[in-house]
Design a protein around this nucleic acid. Structure first.
Length: 593
RNA sequence: GCGCCCAUAGCUCAGCUGGAUAGAGCACCGGCCUUCUAAGCCGGGGGUCGGAGGUUCGAGUCCUCCUGGGCGCGCCA
């Protein structure tokens, strides 16, 4: 609908230019959109106001010229008028509006989507990337659902998407995990081996130790640490990753590639990237970072706290590329730090030839962004290809009271428990309903409620109601004949303002999807559905005495076409969001708890 | 101290990259089921869009400053 009108506006502008009425040096950045106020027509266009300055003419004057010279060969526009400061308010011919549902039905499952991998753009979305030191918990949930939602959106927008999980299976934390496993393993043989501060007290480590005992018996009891440690670490990582994959599957979250940090080290990629920087001359050896001299730090900041541990090493000149200070990439003994591996990982991503690389980070990692950007820029690659989606913190509440989650206090809330309690769809719905860059309150009581208060059911009921109407029609001997059987005579029967409004709205799905994909904002698709469903329910209730299925077979087919197009739109949108579209929902009981 | 994010109805949040009269859900009040699902609909109250300047035809949206909140500022990962 929008593109139809935009084409007319463009043609009109070109015609006016040829007549000499407009200079039209550049194509103006105008929008065509449905106005909030329905008395302003079907579509509204701000082109005259946008052009006013460049043309040196008052907006209304330009608008009037466009109206007078409108190029509309196909007779799409029924009426156009100038309003307010220079808006063009367009009313479309009825039949144009009434046909708007046809595309949805013709496209079927592909409605709202561009063909798979049709843009030729390869996009990598990295998300979750939890440490393999334990189960995935509720703190990961937002980034997990959002990353998955963004990946689905980009796929729907026609990109070739790879979903990737970066496993931090290297370094101190997994080492500590390995040591904890060994202690639990010793305990299984009755040997006293108390856990130290910072080790992992939870039951799953005991289970891993039991697996080790079952598999290898007592062979690691008296072995040297350099013998048992790699074994314990590897088993723990494998077991934890397996559990994480199961949890993600329960949440209907999928990854294509699991990328290992340890593998980067073993493959020489980490030291390789350090040498790459050295060869480019963007490093120096020193005792301390540059860029910090004039910087005043609060005494209790971590930087100050660890200042005495600065020992010298090889630094990357990130401060010249937007970072606060230069960052160390090799310690004095030549071993790489976490950032070095992360940069090696990013280099690896770029080397794999992606056109767009998206990192979904929690807000607690926002401090890494400037140094990664600087490091990536110093690789000599195009920084514009790298985007960060920063997901703000989630405050967990139950009935308004904050639920404190702490690993140390053993009050972790595993994703699996949440999914089991509340279901994947309600959780996904909450996390996809807000923008990533605002904090979010997650009400456990609400999401666990299997009643009408749970907002996801409003959505699913909308789809189920469409399905129900189509079923009812079939039962009454008037099944929807299919889009091929729908003629202009049929669609012309959709004369109610509510019917036209639904058709206009649902026809916007492709625009909504591409806009949401560009902005990496799945919630836009969700709110689009909300508005569509509200219109459906309102229409349904208002015309209960003049229902969809009646003795007037032509009108019945026309309305079934409307309902079918709406159902397809919701189904397609839900698929993009990753939410189930049920054909029916059991009626809620009043005393549902 | 510095950096990033946020502030819109009592609560949780939208507001489509600057458009016309700021919306939804929950909560509250009042209505609507012998009919294709009442997990629904209709109506009502409720707002100096945190504050102050600025940019322009036009600002919840962009810029500056201020206030308040979250996160971060390690040769941990």
């Amino acid at each position: 609908m929008r593109t139809l009108v935009a084409a007319i506006v463009d043609a009109t502008l070109n015609a006016l230019k040829e007549q000499g009425a407009l200079k039209l040096q550049a194509r103006p950045e105008y929008v065509v959109e449905p106005p909030k106020n329905p008395t302003h027509g079907d579509l509204s266009c701000n082109v005259a106001m946008v052009m006013a300055k460049a043309e040196g003419l008052p907006p209304r004057k330009i608008a009037e010229a466009i109206v007078a010279g409108l190029v509309d060969h196909d007779g799409v526009v029924a009426k156009v008028e100038v309003a307010g400061p220079g808006f063009l308010n367009l009313t479309l011919r009825d039949l144009v509006v009434q046909r708007l549902g046809l595309r949805a039905l013709q496209a079927g499952e592909g409605w709202g989507r561009r063909p798979r991998a049709s843009t030729g753009k390869r996009v990598l979305v990295e998300f979750v990337s939890a440490n393999p030191t334990g189960p995935i918990h509720i703190g990961h949930a937002r980034g997990a659902f959002l990353g998955d939602g963004v990946a689905r959106l980009l796929e729907a927008a026609g990109h070739d998407v790879t979903r990737e999980f970066y496993i931090n299976d290297f370094g101190k934390q997994v080492e500590t995990l390995g040591r904890t496993v060994h202690k639990r393993y010793q305990q299984l043989f009755g040997i006293e081996a108390p856990l130290a501060e910072g080790e992992y007290p939870a039951q799953y480590v005991v289970d891993i130790a039991q697996k080790l005992k079952d598999r290898d018996g007592d062979r690691w009891l008296r072995a040297a640490a350099d013998q048992w440690l790699p074994v314990c670490m590897q088993l723990a990582i494998d077991e934890n990753m397996a559990a994480i994959k199961v949890s993600l599957a329960h949440a209907h979250i999928r990854h294509d590639v699991f990328s290992s940090e340890a593998a980067l080290h073993q493959g020489g990629k980490v030291l390789g990237v350090a040498r790459h920087y050295q060869a480019r001359g963007v490093t120096y050896d020193a005792d301390r970072a540059q860029g910090t001299e004039e910087k005043v730090r609060r005494e209790d900041s971590k930087a100050a706290q660890f200042a005495d541990r600065q020992l010298g090493g090889t630094f990357l000149i990130t401060s010249r590329h937007g970072d606060d200070e230069d960052r160390i990439i090799l310690r004095r003994d030549g071993t790489p730090v976490y950032l070095t591996a992360d940069l090696a990982y990013h280099k690896d991503k770029f080397d794999r030839g992606f056109d767009r690389i998206i990192d979904v980070f929690g807000a607690d990692h926002s401090g890494h962004v400037p140094r990664i950007k600087a490091g990536v820029e110093l690789l000599g690659v195009d920084l514009k290809k790298l985007e960060f989606l920063l997901v703000q913190m989630v405050r967990i509440t139950r009935d308004g009271q904050e639920v404190k989650v702490s690993k140390r206090k053993g009050t972790v809330f595993e994703l699996d428990d949440l999914i089991e309690e509340a279901g994947a769809d309600p959780c996904r719905f909450i996390f996809l309903s807000k923008t990533a860059n605002a904090q979010l309150d997650f009400d456990l009581a609400l999401v666990e409620k299997q009643s009408k208060d749970n907002p996801v059911f409003y959505f699913q009921y909308g789809h189920a109601r469409c399905a129900s109407i189509l079923r009812f029609a079939a039962d009454k001997g008037q099944p929807f004949a299919g889009v091929a059987a729908i003629t202009d005579a049929h669609v012309a029967r959709l004369v109610l303002p509510e019917e036209k409004s639904i058709l206009k709205r649902l026809s916007a799905l492709p625009d909504v999807v591409s806009g949401a994909a560009e902005a990496l904002e799945p919630h836009r698709v969700l709110y689009f559905c909300q508005e569509l469903i509200a219109e459906l329910h309102s229409y349904y209730t208002k015309y209960r005495s003049d229902p969809v299925v009646s003795d007037d077979r032509e009108k019945t087919q026309a309305r079934l076409y409307l309902i079918a197009a709406l159902k397809q739109t919701l189904k397609s949108a839900f698929a993009i969001l990753g939410i189930d579209a049920p054909e029916s929902m059991s009626r809620a009981t009043d005393d549902d708890e």
